[in-house]
């Protein structure tokens, strides 16, 4: 049992070693007005890598991953996603967004469309997938997140956990190369957090490249290849999950972990 686990982990490590880069952020800075929100961010993510980003609120972690699909604009430095550099070129931005799926804290499903229509919208209109094929694709991913029976309901009729799983399925329907999760469980009742995390763990095990902003440290320990701690707009510490939790190097990381794991 333990043996197969180690085997799987080492197989995963081998894959990472040969894979290319999914995201490369170099010397990136961002300001809101005069406020310097992101300071000298350097981060490279390999294809297939799973990264968990944590830190106190206001530390810039959400802003950073929102820069990766340009929901936020950066003012200096470079961001290259899947080989495409993000500039103000709209074509490039749309190209990146096609390859990068995002899951939001508040789900952001389209309330006027059914679950199925939510999932079919982008494949049909962005990828030009024929309608029938898009429907099959949507049903495939809805089965994967275990809610195919809700396909013809509207988002308002689903629980928070179900909505978030639909949001994951909706993003997956675009067959993205990278998935961004912006605090996907923070708006959920404790009972529903597990169902969403299980879906994310299943996704991680399939080799999806993931960047997750989350406070779910159990999730970080289970799937992360690297944990990144941010504070005051900077990356303060970066380490494998084992070392990160057992032997945090920085004083601020220790204080943060003490706060969230303390009780």
């Amino acid at each position: 049992m333990n043996n197969t686990m180690t085997q799987r982990v080492s197989a995963h490590k081998d894959r990472l070693a040969v894979a290319g880069f999914a995201v490369e952020i170099a010397g990136m800075n961002k300001w809101y007005g005069d406020f310097h929100v992101l300071r000298d961010i350097n981060l490279t993510v390999r294809l297939g890598e799973r990264i968990v980003i944590c830190g106190p609120s206001g530390s810039g972690k959400s802003t950073m991953i929102r820069c990766i699909n340009r929901l936020e604009e950066h003012q200096s430095g470079t961001i290259v996603v899947d080989g495409i550099e993000l500039t103000s070129d709209l074509k490039k931005i749309e190209e990146v967004r096609r390859e990068v799926g995002m899951v939001f804290q508040h789900f952001n499903l389209f309330p006027h469309l059914t679950i199925l229509q939510n999932c079919m919208l982008a494949p049909v209109w962005v990828r030009k997938v024929p309608e029938k094929q898009a429907r099959d694709l949507a049903m495939h991913f809805l089965e994967k997140v275990r809610i195919p029976d809700q396909a013809h309901k509207y988002p308002g009729q689903l629980s928070g956990g179900q909505q978030q799983r639909v949001a994951i399925a909706r993003a997956l329907c675009m067959k993205p190369r990278v998935m961004l999760f912006d605090e996907p469980t923070s708006a959920l009742d404790p009972e529903m957090i597990k169902e969403v995390l299980d879906t994310m763990i299943a996704l991680a095990e399939e080799g999806m490249t993931m960047l997750c902003v989350t406070h779910e440290m159990g999730f970080a320990q289970a799937v992360a290849d690297r944990v990144i701690f941010m504070d005051q707009g900077q990356i303060v510490e970066e380490n494998g999950p084992k070392a990160f939790f057992s032997a945090p190097q920085s004083e601020r990381t220790r204080a943060f972990l003490g706060q969230i794991l303390g009780h």
């Binding site: 967004r97 499903l109 982008a122 962005v126």
Partner: peptide, 8 residues
């Protein structure tokens, strides 16, 4: 944001 993030 959700519409944009999907590439629309």
């Amino acid at each position: 944001e959700a519409a944009g993030a999907l590439g629309l």
